[in-house]
């Protein structure tokens, strides 16, 4: 330490080099991180898209717009369409009672157990106010149809050991996921009936045009679609925004 001033001057010079190095590494690091993060693809706002289908029993096989009044009540088969991006399946369900009479579904507050946030469900639409639509990806760990599906009221006996109350508590059926047993109430904004899920299914807001009897998906409400950081990113936008074709999945 005999050379004290020299040592500190030497350290000062080293510090100067270090500072420049920090500047360069900072700039470099920023560029590399920003570059390596995959640029997101998606949309800037929710598109509005008319739902098409090939009606059951159609001979021509040509897709036509879904007529809300013709859409089957308590359909035993699953109807899926993709919205808002091509990787996001959603159910379209016409809810009815055990004798397949469509039931009016009113908006209700739905609680997201995981966060405590409450949102208002959009309720049913169509001529009877009975058509609802939810994301078809289970909010627990992401199982997709047909593992997660709608059980109409007359199929609830299959789930009797799982449902917390008697079948009469669920007059319009339930959505149930076989992966780990989460159950959602389609009459109440896909709110939680049984865990392990702590989030309801995201609700799709539908628009029904009474003059043409067509249905269109136009927005989403509730939690974010499973596995995504935002509903509008992380997937390819729909190729034809005017028409979204539904697919039918039969349940074995």
């Amino acid at each position: 330490m005999a050379d004290e001033p020299d040592v500190s001057r030497r350290n000062f010079l080293k510090t100067l080099v270090g500072l420049s190095a920090v500047a360069a590494v900072g700039g470099l690091g920023k560029a590399v991180v920003q570059n390596v993060v995959t640029p997101s693809v998606g949309l800037s706002s929710f598109p509005e898209t008319v739902l098409y289908w090939v009606p059951p029993g159609s001979n021509s096989g040509t897709p036509v717009p879904v007529k809300a009044s013709e859409f089957p009540v308590n359909s035993p088969n699953i109807w899926i369409y993709y919205y808002p991006l091509t990787d996001d399946p959603n159910f379209l369900i016409n809810l009815g009672n055990s004798s397949n009479v469509p039931q009016k579904i009113s908006p209700v507050p739905v609680t997201i157990d995981a966060t405590g946030v409450v949102f208002q469900s959009p309720g049913g639409t169509g001529p009877n106010g009975s058509i609802v639509s939810f994301s078809a990806i289970c909010q627990h760990l992401g199982c997709v149809p047909p593992i997660i599906r709608y059980y109409p009221p007359n199929q609830l006996s299959i789930l009797s050991s799982i449902l917390p109350g008697p079948a009469s508590d669920y007059p319009n059926g339930v959505i149930h996921c076989d992966c780990h047993g989460s159950t959602y109430d389609p009459s109440k904004g896909a709110g939680i009936i049984t865990h392990p899920t702590y989030k309801p299914l995201p609700n799709v807001i539908l628009a029904w045009d009474p003059s043409t009897d067509t249905l269109a998906a136009k927005n989403m409400k509730g939690p974010t679609i499973y596995g995504k950081s935002s509903d509008l990113s992380g997937g390819t936008p729909l190729s034809n925004l005017q028409k979204t074709l539904m697919i039918q999945m039969s349940v074995g």
Partner: peptide, 12 residues
């Protein structure tokens, strides 16, 4: 060196 560091920061 001090001047160079100041320039570096400016550039950054």
């Amino acid at each position: 060196s001090s001047i160079l560091v100041i320039i570096s920061m400016e550039i950054l």
